[in-house]
């Protein structure tokens, strides 16, 4: 599904290039659950954002489902990102002014989906995540775990093939964290490809493969045994 080769990303400051990513090669198959790990500043998030087409690499090739992302224009990239990719953030990034319902609805609005279709989809997701009762609340009225549930609901509402999660449990206590991780692996079993960034070995265990980054380089790739649970 994803094919990255010779990816470089650097920032130029007073003619000195600071490399964030150096010669990263990576491939992810459809339906995989991949974890990116590494110390702070290793370039994990940058890699994730590049994968999510929110950021661009300075050089290298990126194929997403046989589209060469590096040569697409902004419009085509937005289209791809809108329809194929969902994001989950460490601090949820819900829109404060909107209710739970409206937050989940937002991506659908940008995809110009009809009102009646939107209602059906949102109802389904609210039901699936067991947050129907909370649909008219504002984000600040929810606990962190609940907010992240909404965050994930929003990320998958448009049925993306790829879900990118940046430390999805970073701000949660362990019980809430576990709940979220269970949800992610469930989504993965239903066919969504997931790439997550995390510090936690425990969370990494939910995936099938761990990519270790250090100073912008892939230092190790670790295959995990597939869990056969559920």
């Amino acid at each position: 599904m994803i094919q990255i080769s010779h990816l470089f990303k650097y920032y130029t400051n007073k003619f000195i290039k600071t490399y964030v990513l150096q010669d990263v090669n990576l491939s992810v198959a459809e339906g995989e659950f991949v974890t990116i790990m590494g110390p702070s500043g290793a370039g994990k998030s940058t890699l994730l954002y590049i994968l999510g087409m929110l950021d661009e690499a300075n050089s290298g090739e990126y194929f997403f489902r046989n589209n060469s992302v590096h040569s697409l224009n902004e419009r085509q990239r937005t289209h791809l990102h809108k329809h194929e990719i969902g994001f989950v953030f460490q601090n949820y990034h819900l829109i404060d002014e909107l209710t739970v319902y409206e937050n989940i609805e937002a991506p659908l609005l940008y995809q110009k989906i009809k009102s009646s279709d939107r209602k059906g989809k949102i109802a389904e997701v609210l039901d699936q995540f067991n947050i129907v009762a909370k649909k008219d609340l504002f984000p600040y009225q929810l606990s962190g775990g609940q907010q992240q549930l909404v965050g994930i609901a929003r990320a998958i509402i448009a049925q993306p093939r790829l879900l990118l999660a940046d430390e999805p449990t970073g701000n949660l206590n362990s019980a809430q964290g576990e709940e979220i991780m269970e949800l992610l692996s469930q989504l993965n079993r239903q066919g969504t490809t997931i790439i997550q960034v995390t510090h936690s070995e425990k969370n990494a265990a939910y995936g099938q493969r761990i990519i270790h980054l250090l100073d912008g380089k892939v230092v190790k790739t670790e295959e995990l045994k597939k869990k056969k649970t559920g």
């Binding site: 999510g52 929110l54 937005t78 990102h81 809108k82 994001f87 990034h93 819900l94 829109i95 937002a106 991506p107 940008y110 995809q111 929003r154 448009a158």
Partner: peptide
């Protein structure tokens, strides 16, 4: 920023 991530142009 969030809205752009969600696909707003």
């Amino acid at each position: 920023g969030i809205r752009k991530v969600l696909g707003a142009n």
